[in-house]
Design a protein around this nucleic acid. Structure first.
Lengths: 134, 134
DNA sequence: TATTGTTATACTCTATAACTATA
DNA sequence: TATAGTTATAGAGTATAACAATA
């Protein structure tokens, strides 16, 4: 069928997408919610840097999340050019619930990954898996 | 940062996307190539079913792959409505090379996954991982 | 009538470039 | 001058619906 690794990524990605769709979310918008959960209120410029995406793209993602009631644009206290994107209480509850669901699935996949394997995977991925086991 | 599983999928997916981009491919177009490698020449309708995508979407993907010289549209021998999407020799070489690269990376991730873990993952994913170890 | 693939239209995610308001 | 965020425009991937050619 597909290449095996591609199949795996597609499978896990589709599973995630189905769950996100139940809450009218996409992967890109969920990424914004998780960034906000980790960082607290930030400017769109900071979001663009964190997500490695253009400022124009952040405008659209925040538009969608604001329309759904997950975030608000608050005025920046000292810089009138900037806005602080802020999780609403409903948005906070949503991202916490999704995080719980995913931790369960991730543990099933990677709890017993041996340490030598992690070393061989190198920088970024090894760090991610390390945190998935913690 | 992102949810941990989302991070993993994003990491692996980005890695794949970077490698595909070196050959001017996207994940969706690579999926067509792999389907053709597994099945041989098929109609667009069959591709749409195999990829769980609309016929309209297949039209666009095949347009791109044909423009790049990876596939051709051949007349169906008995049904003049249909076309047989066929890998060119260059397309065949490309998909074989990508498959080799990915098998290496996949083995690094999953070679020692314990069998009980696989059982707990249930249907589709367990089957994929089983084949990745073989 | 039913099926194959197309055109028409629309939405999301992505990008660059030009512009406005502010620093 | 430089920065934050917008509008304008474009392209890929996805969808539904209407249509032409063929079965």
């Amino acid at each position: 069928m597909l290449g095996l690794l591609l199949e795996l990524v597609v499978f896990v990605g589709d599973d995630m997408q189905r769950r996100l769709a139940r809450d009218d979310l996409t992967a890109a918008r969920a990424g914004v919610l998780w960034a906000l959960r980790a960082r607290g209120p930030v400017t769109q410029r900071e979001l663009a840097t964190a997500l490695a995406v253009t400022p124009r793209n952040v405008t659209g993602l925040v538009d969608g999340l604001a329309a759904a009631g997950h975030v608000t644009r608050e005025p920046h206290p000292t810089d009138r050019r900037a806005t602080l994107v802020t999780l609403t209480p409903a948005g906070t509850r949503l991202v916490e619930r999704l995080e719980d669901e995913q931790r369960e699935f991730a543990g099933l996949l990677f709890d017993d990954m041996p340490a030598e394997r992690l070393d061989a995977l190198g920088g970024g991925l090894a760090e991610i898996l390390e945190r998935m086991r913690g």
